[in-house]
Design a protein around this nucleic acid. Structure first.
Lengths: 275, 275
DNA sequence: ACAAAAATGTTGTTTTTTGTTGTTTTTTCA
DNA sequence: TGAAAAAACAACAAAAAACAACATTTTTGT
């Protein structure tokens, strides 16, 4: 383990990270690739002529560095995930996300213009907008574009580029330039975490950059986030609270977050009927 | 079971729930993909060399995490859902188009690069390619992009712009510039009509312009057209016969068209078994 | 070469998964 | 409709896998 911490000598290029692995870890990765992305521990131990315990120890290290995922009975390469995690995420908290999406859709009228970003919750928002008419939609999500184009006389503008394998989103300079062309009434955005100290946070720099552009070109900024996002932290700050207009969630929020929102003039819609 | 509940992580970050599969669950998912999305429990038990009861237990776990759907006697991948064909044209000659699409998919190998244009037949080709891996896909169709992105480690590049309301396609200079960046092994194209005198024809100038660019950047040009297209005329000529490599259709073609194709070194695949 | 550190193998224990048996539910076919 | 067959389910013993602690070997630094 300690060898993993010798950060001083790390030149910190992307390669340096993987080079710090032991040779056996490299062998495990190679064998995983040969085997189509996943192996049993037993098999690896046999192939590499070491005990299963040793394989487990190396596997633990690799899992910490995020290259593989450990499952009972075996291991799996992370980048060989043939099934998109995005699809999985769509099914987590699905009922809450649907409820949130319905609330957001209520705020949008026929003919409105809006930006929708990439995210499982915004995918549900797109579905909830299926019966709206004449929408002017800007998005960088292929799922959103597919849901809302060729329907109800909507006009859909999608950003170009390589679509990220895990969520079908287009990012990068080209996408940002595309987004900059527009000025929408609403920007409907996802977040990774919401926190009383730091406000709205994300786990991905590309997403944050693009979301900020979309925010700057929209009159009303709406954050759609299920309650599991609250009270956590993310590495990247998307925005201060006072730059957001509405937060839509599924449960009443924590007290200190509620006061923060209130102080910043953020409307919180929490899915609970309030007289 | 208990491992699925590990209460410490139960703050339900979206990933945490779905990450804990066993290796057998991975194997089941892999087998399902190999088998085109659905299998019988018996078959899975046989393939994986375990009892049916074990398969059922793992299947239950996968169903809870939303990845598959359980039916009496078997299981199916859940992502086959919501494949809403977005237009009536998709349902015209659907069985023929599916057959054509299957033929085209047979020509493509894992890891190949290809361009797919906007069209109902190419939409079926995209579906037929769902079980391919590591594809490099360039398209201006939001439907194609949605079908093939976030799957099987494919890389999907989609052209930007306003999506046409009737077919979800991106056209225009911006899209053409985007397409020009690529050089693919295959270009798979639709046509509006095929005619012994004029060759391949379209009804839409935008489509023709973009298709020509795609053709010029591909090694093998494949036209996918059902038999209803033959013998008709369209206002715009896409290409002479000799610039096309393969035509895939569902029925044997007319004699004079067949000779024309033959003279122009075009392979005609007509879906009929030929000894 | 020597000592310290790291990695590996071994053994025993705990946890998780699997096979088996028998029962209940659902489907099939007459 | 009703009986036979197939599939799903439940519970418990057995097997497999993961884990922890300690002894042994290999590597590293001086």
């Amino acid at each position: 383990m300690a060898n993993r911490m010798t950060a001083l000598t790390a030149t910190a290029t992307d390669e340096a990270d993987t080079q710090r692995n032991t040779h056996r870890e490299l062998e495990i990765l190679a064998q995983l690739r040969l085997s189509g992305g996943s192996c049993r521990v037993r098999f690896l131990a046999d192939r590499l002529q070491v005990s299963e315990q040793t394989v487990r120890r190396n596997v633990r290290g690799l899992e910490i560095s995020g290259l593989i995922r450990k499952v009972h009975g075996g291991v799996q390469l992370v980048d060989a995930m043939t099934e998109a995690p995005f699809h999985q995420r769509m099914n987590v908290n699905a009922s809450h996300k649907k409820a949130i999406a319905a609330r957001v859709a209520d705020m949008i009228s026929d003919g409105d213009s809006l930006f929708l970003d990439v995210g499982s919750t915004t995918a549900y928002v797109a579905m909830a907008l299926k019966n709206h008419q004449n929408l002017f939609v800007v998005t960088n999500s292929v799922g959103v574009a597919h849901t809302l184009s060729t329907r109800n006389n909507n006009r859909v503008f999608m950003a170009a580029g390589e679509l990220r394998p895990h969520d079908g989103g287009a990012f990068g300079d080209r996408a940002i330039d595309f987004i900059k062309q527009f000025n929408t009434q609403y920007a409907i955005l996802s977040v990774g975490a919401i926190n009383a100290e730091a406000g709205f946070m994300l786990h991905d720099l590309q997403e944050a950059t693009l979301s900020r552009v979309a925010m700057s070109r929209a009159q009303t900024k709406i954050i759609a986030a299920d309650s599991s996002k609250f009270g956590h932290r993310g590495p990247i700050q998307l925005a201060e609270c006072n730059s957001i207009d509405i937060v839509v969630t599924d449960q009443p929020v924590d007290n200190n977050i509620a006061t923060l929102m209130n102080d910043s003039d953020v409307d919180v819609v929490d899915g609970v009927m309030n007289a």
